[in-house]
Nucleic acid binder design. Structure first.
Lengths: 175, 175
DNA sequence: CACAAGATGAGAATGCTTTGCATTTCCTTG
DNA sequence: CAAGGAAATGCAAAGCATTCTCATCTTGTG
């Protein structure tokens, strides 16, 4: 019998150990996996072991991640970095993850499901990213989209500056 | 007498020819140059020939630009690509330019002075970038910033999707 | 269970961006 | 106006995230 590794984690900390589990596919398919499978089928692509692992690792993380991070989580599971890079755009197109911010020359993603649209507040000093809800902004943006006849896909609102903590410590430097 | 090249263009199309002009520094200093000089002084840095050329080339362009573009505009003026790359972050820190979008693996900037805050609408198909005013969104963002005690620096609103033109031609593909 | 289309891993390649270093330019001080 | 030290520059050589190549392996179908 052919079986594949499937993760159904909500807790990122137990990820590594649970990655060892070898469950039957049909019993554990998650919503997002079904969504991904549907999307792939429509494109004549397949839901493979690697893609499933990458998808589940993404959803197990409740923080921003980049290709390298996913790859390191899947270390020892024989998933190459190239495949991670090949899979990320698929997940984006499938509407499962989105590019959150780009900082330090790396693209950082986040999963979307059950994750309301939000803005990222990036502190230029300590690099911390804070999130806030943007539901109040959405109607205005959608209205503008309609005016432009623009089909919305992703909305990215990134605000950079200095967070409360850092602007306090900058106020009294090296003293 | 020491003199340097200074540009004071509003018309990008005559850039190349005007780059030949050799004007006296003190007669032609622009607002943005003064601002840059002040910024550099504060950091113990100098407003040099190369930096001045790069700054002026940036402000002569009324479109997005990347390092390569500035470098090609300044071809023959003995400004190295490395210096362009070294200067861009300075201009950003000085509040004179900002990172507009990153597409095709390149960072594209735009100058800020007299340029009201706006959103970028990037068509994923034809890569066209449209700009719209975001003055209606600003109060909401500033209010949120106050709540977070966050010192605003840059606000980036990038919206990707499909523009009117492309969604029309996608509707009847290869037929 | 064979087959064709897709997918993968490994590593080479790509291309933007950064860095090291010897040389030049800049500004201040006599 | 010359000297001197700090900064800046050009050039070429990395760095580094991401993409590509290609031989091999998987996947779902008939």
């Amino acid at each position: 019998m052919q079986s594949i590794l499937i993760l159904c984690l909500t807790d990122p900390y137990s990820l590594k150990s649970l990655l060892q589990m070898n469950l039957n596919k049909d019993n554990t398919m998650q919503d997002y996996e079904l969504q991904f499978k549907k999307f792939l089928l429509k494109r004549g692509l397949k839901l493979t072991r690697s893609r499933s692992l990458i998808l589940n690792a993404s959803f197990a993380l409740h923080e921003h991640f980049d290709a390298e991070k996913l790859h390191s989580i899947l270390k020892g599971m024989n998933v190459s970095l190239a495949t991670v890079y090949r899979t990320l755009p698929l997940l984006v197109d499938a509407g499962l993850i989105q590019l959150a911010v780009r900082s330090d020359g790396r693209d950082r993603y986040e999963h979307i499901l059950g994750h309301p649209k939000h803005a990222h507040w990036l502190c230029e000093n300590c690099k911390t990213v804070t999130e806030t809800n943007i539901s109040s902004l959405l109607p205005l943006i959608e209205q503008e989209a309609k005016a432009l006849n623009f089909t919305l896909d992703q909305i990215t609102i990134n605000i950079s500056g200095t967070c409360w903590k850092c602007s306090n410590s900058e106020a009294n430097p090296q003293s």
